[in-house]
Design a protein around this nucleic acid. Sequence first.
DNA 1: AATTCAGTTCCAGTAAATGGAACTACGGGT
DNA 2: ACCCGTAGTTCCATTTACTGGAACTGAATT
Lengths: 290, 290
Amino acid sequence: MSVEGHTYQHNVVGAPGTDGDPCEDSPRDEHAPSRSTGTLGKALEVLDMIALSEQPLRFTDILRQTDQPRGTLHRQIKNLLEEGLICQNADQSYIPGLRLLKLAARAWSQNSFRLIAESHVRSLHAATGETVHLGVMNDLEVIYVDKLETRQSVRMHSQVGNASPLYCTGIGKAMMALLPREECVARARRISYKRHTAATLYTPELLLGEIEIIRETGIAHDREEHEPGIRCVAAGINNTDIDLIGGVSVTAPAYRIDDKTVENWQHLVREAAAAIELDMRSGLGPRSHE
Amino acid sequence: MSVEGHTYQHNVVGAPGTDGDPCEDSPRDEHAPSRSTGTLGKALEVLDMIALSEQPLRFTDILRQTDQPRGTLHRQIKNLLEEGLICQNADQSYIPGLRLLKLAARAWSQNSFRLIAESHVRSLHAATGETVHLGVMNDLEVIYVDKLETRQSVRMHSQVGNASPLYCTGIGKAMMALLPREECVARARRISYKRHTAATLYTPELLLGEIEIIRETGIAHDREEHEPGIRCVAAGINNTDIDLIGGVSVTAPAYRIDDKTVENWQHLVREAAAAIELDMRSGLGPRSHE
DNA sequence: AATTCAGTTCCAGTAAATGGAACTACGGGT
DNA sequence: ACCCGTAGTTCCATTTACTGGAACTGAATT
């Protein structure tokens, strides 16, 4: 039977011309800012706005950020409210709702990439004693799907589901190195860079240069490029069967690690990544029967 | 005022001063057979089906479970796919998508109930050394919004976002005890009971009897009613301002705890719940700390 | 080659979303 | 009290895009 692994993908690269599914950007090539998929897309646009905002938004805040008429927006919000996707505070501001949590819990526990990787992530955590992340590529960012904290479970899940840029994280760079070259360059160009620290690779050229090295070594380093004082060692995981690119990493405060430790981690991380990749290929799925 | 009260909200105060409008969800009829909210509702119905199913579903599996025509269903799925709410395996089965994780991460980190409760949950965890849960009531179930594991962060978030029944969990029963009496009875009747263990309270009468006791003591016990060998001590948290009912609990294997421990926990749990309730009332908003 | 089953596309008909305007409610300034 | 501005909500004719039946593809099975 075919490799049956359920996995996550989001239209990662792929051969040009396999299907005419313009999933990438706007279906119609107008420069319309909203590439909404009909009604659903519009509703999600509002949901995104509410969920991704830093502060809780009130009705008029949302109205201002959108070009929809009041009546329309109000109905959309009402629908979201009724569906439990958002809920409303006493001061009438809106925040994401419980139903999202419930949905995501299933998304997470069913994610077969995570399931397959789980034991390896755990070994890696045991072997290093430091924080281990597992992530997948999603366009220009990495989304963390699992995380094991260094020790005392500080706060679980603080990162799970969170997104970080590709260009300044170990996992992100490791994943980019797995892309076909043109695709890699294309993405590097599309990124909007921010210089988080002095070490941040803040141009496509810098990034692509580093990626060349990563391609050879199979290991990516984050040398305080995202947060000062934080370093990490990462390796990418590639499953072309399923069009999934992911990565694992070990993270630690810079002061705590020396060259020898890093050396050691490189092997561990590389092995973990290879093992996960292998398990995925061999179809060692959550339900491997049938 | 309608007796039905499946309010979805879970946030907290914010504006000091005026409120008193607990935001009834009036426009909902009785239990109309999921008279979906227009297009959005239908899309979510499909999403729910995919997310809540145990196995990944293929197109025809979904088609069978719904009464929609093929064309319609196909388009709905395509929309969900395009929006990244679901994604598709190699074998064409569908599973929930990354976007849900991302959304939920925000929902979680913004949830002010959780934020306010956080420090108290942590103290409780420190004081008992056992697993601590924080949950909110959602109609007939409790949804866990936070969890601190007993020791080695086994797997974070294994429960966060998950739903459990009200009648066989400590938190669930503690929350029910906070409902107005008629409402409590009404819900107890609506529950469909399953006898998980020998100790499970599997009729409305048994449940309501126990709840009487909980009302007096302010503490709910789960005496291996959900899982054999697992006990827990819980207390409810009530915020009428905002129409939120939640709860905290400490859970441990039965063999590990004796009466004296339980006695001790009762106080700790009760105090934690009271402290959270107080913090909510005093408008200690989401952004006031951390 | 014929038959099934799974997935996809098409298009007239129709249900549902739209958006403008009108309405309520609150608060503050004069 | 007044008026006015802002915030949120409702209404309804118009128009959009969702619906669903049927017909098409294409792979696996007989």
